[in-house]
Write a protein that binds this DNA or RNA. Structure first.
Lengths: 235, 235
DNA sequence: CGTCCAGTTGATGTAAATCAAACCCAGTGG
DNA sequence: CCACTGGGTTTGATTTACATCAACTGGACG
């Protein structure tokens, strides 16, 4: 049974230039002002697919708002979410000829789409852009390795702690200790190699231990960052 | 308790040019003849470290013979082997400033070492080399994602099946169905997120099911490739 | 011949999965 | 305004795959 049901519609592509949407979210972006002129904006509705595993990789994307998940499926529907992408993140940069994951919107999202042929042409003139994209891929690989250690060797509590801190660090909320969780419990489970119920119970667990506070299913607060960080590192 | 004990000695570096050791093992290599002139040969004894997580990344390496494991450790000694590298594989190409994993020899190994500054200079003149290295990193990332799916969602039998087929495909043995396993059961366990005992039992399991034959602890044979492949894909 | 270490096999424990039932809340529609 | 629906979430009871603890084997080596 397939868990993920997609509304088959792809995001509607507007032809508008992306400049307005591209205020620099990350430091590196300032180096890449050239990119802004090349992108076009895409709106993606909750649960619709940006691209699927195996599709020809014609575009790179950058997330402006909302969240995207990249996932792989087994034949019988078991799913793994390889990563969540938040505002400012690039997605699809690691593709060779085809995408190695399916990408779907976690909630309604806005992205900028860059044609690969444009970028590849740009790289020839501006090696800095090439180095930047390479650095993104290397960083993702390094992250992936941390994630493998987590999946192979850490307990549910430890997984959840490291997940929360990672999300907290990336979704730069005005309040450092408030963590927005746009995804469902089942998404989190499929990312951490746990079932929904275990994610719930473990949240309850961390709450009872006084490490976090569950404001709502989609927002929680860090109460003891130290303790959480210790857990996340397996100490 | 730390599982991995290293003899502290690094591999001894010989100053000899690498040409002799560099007969092309993979198709892509022929494109990279230029590289051959730049490398120097390294001999690495079993269990000694090539580099450690956090070391400044000054070199790329290519394995000529033997096997190397790349691993990450938690403070309390829990270990994950992110990958095994066999003859023909490149290692360290994904590093940014520092290596994100420790690399150790599984058995006595021969590698070629390329100074990064040499390669980086070469890339400016020959973008083909750059593209090749980028493609290696992307392929590794794609592999890593498959591995995450495996660690998060597959049973011990399925993990072992997919591991065996992957090793079989990469270590091009004259006999397609004979799989050399240079690493220990504990190495395999740390790669698959299982304990040594479970690896043993699962081997026994696959043997009883008639899927494989265990010639010796370090060599086994595939009897039913189809069935093994089905397991590996989670069908 | 004893030591050592990787591998194997057996008995028991446990974290997380599975099965099952509420619960909560935002829509929707009578 | 309230009953009804349905998706996501939560909590409880039970099962299970794998971990853990423990003991034995067998080859390598001084």
């Amino acid at each position: 049974m397939l868990r993920a049901e997609h509304r088959s519609a792809r995001g509607s592509v507007s032809a508008a230039p992306a400049v307005a949407a591209m205020e620099p979210v990350q430091a590196e972006d300032t180096e890449l002002g050239i990119l802004d002129r090349l992108g076009s904006v895409i709106l993606l509705r909750r649960d619709s697919a940006l691209f699927r595993e195996g599709d020809a990789a014609n575009c790179y994307y950058k997330i402006v708002s909302g969240a995207v998940r990249s996932c792989k499926l087994l034949a019988d529907g078991r799913r793994h979410i390889t990563d969540f992408f938040l505002a400012g993140d690039f997605i699809g940069v690691d593709a060779l000829k085809t995408y190695s994951c399916t990408a779907e919107a976690v909630n309604d999202a806005t992205l900028v789409c860059y044609e690969r042929r444009d970028i590849d042409a740009l790289i020839l003139r501006s090696p800095r852009v090439g180095r930047f994209l390479l650095s993104r891929v290397c960083a993702e690989l390094s992250e992936a390795r941390c994630r493998m250690l987590m999946l192979g060797r850490m307990s549910a509590r430890e997984r959840l702690a490291s997940f929360l801190l990672r999300i907290a660090a990336r979704s730069r909320h005005q309040d450092r200790d408030t963590i927005p969780l746009p995804m469902t419990r089942s998404d989190i489970g499929d990312h951490l190699g746990l079932r929904t119920e275990t994610v719930c119970r473990t949240f309850a667990d961390l709450k009872n231990a006084g490490l976090i506070e569950v404001a709502s299913p989609h927002e929680l607060r860090v109460l003891q960052r130290q303790a959480l960080a210790a857990l996340a590192q397996g100490v």
